[in-house]
C-alpha cells in the first residue's frame, strides 16, 4: 500500500509539474508532450505499465485490507462513534473508488481519447514543434509536427462538467493524500512523536499543492485566462455541436 502509494504520490507531482507548463504557453507544453511521446516505445510503455501495475496493486491491497477488516468484525456496534480519526482517513475507501472512476475517465479522455465526441485525434490538426522559440525542423527542412496537447486541454476544460468532475476529483485526491502521505511514513516506520506534526503538516501542504496545481488549469480555462487561439473556427464550432448531440 505504502510503496505503491509512494510511486503514485511522486507521479502526481510530476504530472502536475508537466501540466502546469500550460501556463508557459502552447509551445512549451506541446514540446513537453512531444518529448514524452517520443521516448522509445518500450520505455514509454514500460512506464505506463508500471504505473498501471502500481494503481492495480494499490487497489488490490486496498480490497484485501477492506475484506480483512470486514472479516475481523463480523458483528458491528449498534452505536458507533469516532473519537479522533480524521474525515480523510475515514473516507479513504470512498475517495479511492471515486478517484478510480475519474482515472478511467481521464485516461479515456486525454490519453486514449475515446470519449464519444472527444476523439481529439480526429478533430485537432497537428502543429509545428517549437522549442526555445525556434521551430524544430526535420532533416528534410520541414517542420516537425506534433499533437496539439495545449488546444486539447483547453478544449476539454471548456466543457463545464469535465472541469467540474476534474476539480472534484483533484479535491478528493487532496483529501486522499493528506491521510495517505502521513500514513505512508507511518507504515514504513519513518514517524515518531517529534515528526508527527511536521509530517501531518507536510501531508496537508502536499495535498493542497496538488489540488491547487491541478485545479488551476480548468479554472483558468473556465474564466478565460487560458484560451486556444489555435482552435480553428471549424473545430471550435464543431465541439459545442458535438456536446449538444452528446447531451441529447
Amino acid at each position: 500500500m505504502a510503496l505503491t502509494g509512494l510511486v503514485l504520490v511522486l507521479f502526481v507531482l510530476g504530472h502536475m509539474g508537466g501540466n502546469l507548463l500550460i501556463f508557459a504557453g502552447q509551445d512549451a507544453i506541446n514540446a513537453y508532450a512531444y518529448q514524452l511521446h517520443s521516448l522509445p516505445a518500450p520505455v514509454l510503455w514500460g512506464i505506463r505499465a508500471f504505473l498501471l501495475v502500481c494503481v492495480g496493486l494499490h487497489i488490490w491491497m486496498a480490497v484485501l485490507l477492506t475484506l480483512a477488516s470486514r472479516k475481523a468484525r463480523p458483528e458491528d456496534y449498534r452505536q458507533k462513534a469516532t473519537v479522533q480519526a480524521t474525515y480523510a482517513s475515514r473516507t479513504m475507501r470512498m475517495s479511492g473508488v471515486i478517484l478510480l472512476s475519474f482515472i478511467i475517465f481521464h485516461i479515456a479522455h486525454y490519453t486514449a481519447r475515446i470519449i464519444p465526441g472527444k476523439e481529439y485525434n480526429t478533430q485537432l490538426t497537428e502543429v509545428p514543434l517549437v522549442q526555445g522559440g525556434e521551430t524544430m525542423l526535420k532533416q528534410s527542412g520541414d517542420p516537425i509536427m506534433t499533437f496539439d496537447v495545449y488546444t486539447m486541454m483547453v478544449a476539454g476544460f471548456q466543457v463545464w462538467w469535465v472541469s467540474l468532475f476534474y476539480i472534484i476529483a483533484v479535491g478528493l485526491l487532496c483529501l486522499h493524500l493528506t491521510h495517505g502521505v502521513t500514513s505512508m511514513f507511518q507504515t514504513i516506520g519513518l514517524r515518531n512523536k517529534r515528526w508527527e506534526n511536521r509530517l501531518n503538516r507536510l501531508a496537508l501542504a502536499y495535498g493542497w499543492i496538488i489540488f491547487l496545481g491541478f485545479a488551476a488549469i480548468p479554472t483558468a480555462v473556465l474564466i478565460g485566462i487560458l484560451d486556444a487561439p489555435a482552435l480553428t473556427a471549424s473545430v471550435a464550432a464543431e465541439i459545442p455541436t458535438q456536446i449538444a448531440t452528446l447531451e441529447k
Binding site: L65, A68, S69, K71, A72, R73, T82, V83, Q84, A85, T86, S89, R90, M92, H179, T182, S183, F185, Q186, T187, I188, G189, L190, R191, N192, K193, E196
Partner: peptide, 27 residues
Amino acid sequence: GSCTNYGECSAVCPKEISLDMIAQMNR
C-alpha cells in the same frame, strides 16, 4: 484486521500508548 492509521486505538487507550510504537514495529 489491518492497520490503516486511523489513530482511534491510541485515542481510546487508557494508557495513551502512542502511534509511534506502531511506526517502530513497522520499521
